[in-house]
Amino acid sequence: MALRDQLRVMVVDDMSTSRGLITNALDSFGIRNVASAADGPSALQKMATSPVHLVISDYNMPGMDGLQLLHSLRSNGATRGVGFLLITGRADREIIDMGKRLGMNNFLKKPFEPAGLRGAIEAIVGKL
């Protein structure tokens, strides 16, 4: 069984367009176990009942931003080992450095092509 059949992904973005784009790209890679949430708290809630291997999250979201979500994930024993890919519109050094310190696995700058997303995921989990 290929990795892509096993991998469970959570997509977090406040814009439904972005969730659609990411989900659509994942679908084209053959990743079908994809859940999505419009904000960090509801993503955490969903992951509590159905855990995932990889979280793909937007940075700029109202309420809880992507790094705060990462912080929450890393603070919780059950989710602290989950893979985390941050998608940002502005790849500020500050954001990346903070992400590094919090244990971000990879980041991707918007806008991205599906191939770029694939590469960013494979850099974390290996060949899909």
Partner: peptide, 11 residues
Amino acid sequence: DFTPMTLSLDL
């Protein structure tokens, strides 16, 4: 500069 952190997923 950012080196992706690999996750070993023993699925």
